[in-house]
């Protein structure tokens, strides 16, 4: 048995690199100055897919929704071992909330078809919602297992795995097809392979340039990054982007922390004694 595994990945601004320079005066984020990175837990998802392929046989397909530049992470996915990649790009997909995003992704998965397992990172670092995975599973009418830590076995269409829950972990069994979301502690993602970088660094998105040099040729050499828009996946434009998103942002504010009555304590034994006496008087140790 070999398994067709689809990994849903996202290119995100590196929110861990946010500094005062990245915030505009009005409290919004100056997105342009943040580096765009492969969402960390999506790397764990890709790693899990590749290890299933190695253990049981199969193929790994990576799919992302985003601007054409999101193809960067698809190339990265190829360097690490993905067999085929798709970028879902359309201006009408922009400003999609999690529900609208799940509609686009599930349409693309339907078009790819014949999958056994879909794997996503638990959440993306720009929104931390953890919603898109379960919503894609619901749209496709398949079971989901979230917070997956370790695949134990995959035999005869049944997968057993450990997932983390509130008070610890549980061993769960489900039939395929299904969707998994993976946490950062599940594995250590493999680095890109130098050999694959040499092979795929010229992988191109299908556009006018690639048309000119012959798509079939690129495709046969595995260098094609297939690009799909709303029409090519049969997506009703009204159901994605801002018009298809039930949630709307009313406003955003910069986090403002109040200054407090500040007292400087000298770095001496007397200073420390005085501080502790004040804290004791304030009953903080009671």
């Amino acid at each position: 048995m070999s398994y067709k595994i689809i990994v849903l990945i996202k290119q995100v601004p590196d929110t861990t690199a946010v500094s005062s320079q990245t915030m505009k005066e009005d409290g919004t984020l100056n997105r342009g100055v943040l580096p765009a990175v492969f969402n960390p837990e999506d790397l764990n998802a890709l790693e899990m897919a590749l290890s299933i392929k190695e253990r049981y046989g199969g193929s790994v397909i990576a799919v992302t929704m985003g601007p054409p530049s999101a193809a960067d992470i698809l190339r990265d996915a190829m360097y690490r071992g993905a067999d085929k990649v798709f970028v879902l790009t359309d201006k009408r997909f922009a400003a999609s909330d999690t529900l609208a995003t799940s509609r686009v992704l599930s349409q693309a998965v339907r078009k790819i078809g014949g999958f056994d397992i879909i794997i996503c990172g638990r959440q993306a670092i720009d929104g931390n919602t953890a919603q898109v995975g379960p919503q894609v599973a619901e749209k496709l009418g398949i079971n989901q297992l979230t917070y997956v830590e370790e695949i134990v076995d995959l035999t005869d269409g049944k997968i057993s795995l450990w997932r983390s829950v509130e008070e610890g972990k549980e061993l769960a069994v489900s039939s395929i097809p299904l969707l998994l979301t993976v946490t950062q502690t599940a594995n250590i993602p493999r680095p890109p392979s130098v050999k694959k970088i040499m092979k795929y660094k010229n992988a191109e998105v299908r556009n006018s340039l690639s048309e000119a040099c012959g798509i079939n040729d690129l495709s046969s050499r595995g260098l094609l990054i297939e690009q799909w828009d709303a029409e090519s996946i049969g997506m009703d434009p009204e159901m994605c982007g801002a018009s298809g998103s039930p949630t709307q942002v009313k406003k955003t504010e910069k986090v403002v922390l109040k200054g407090k009555q500040f007292k400087k304590i000298e770095q001496t034994d007397e200073g420390i004694r005085e501080l502790l006496q004040e804290l004791i008087k304030d009953y903080v140790f009671d």
Binding site: P13, T15, M23, L29, Q248, V249, K250, E253, K254, V255
Partner: peptide, 13 residues
């Protein structure tokens, strides 16, 4: 919070 906790967003449905 959004953007890694750097802004606070108010969302409505």
């Amino acid at each position: 919070p959004a953007w890694g906790g750097n802004i606070i967003a108010t969302i409505v449905n």
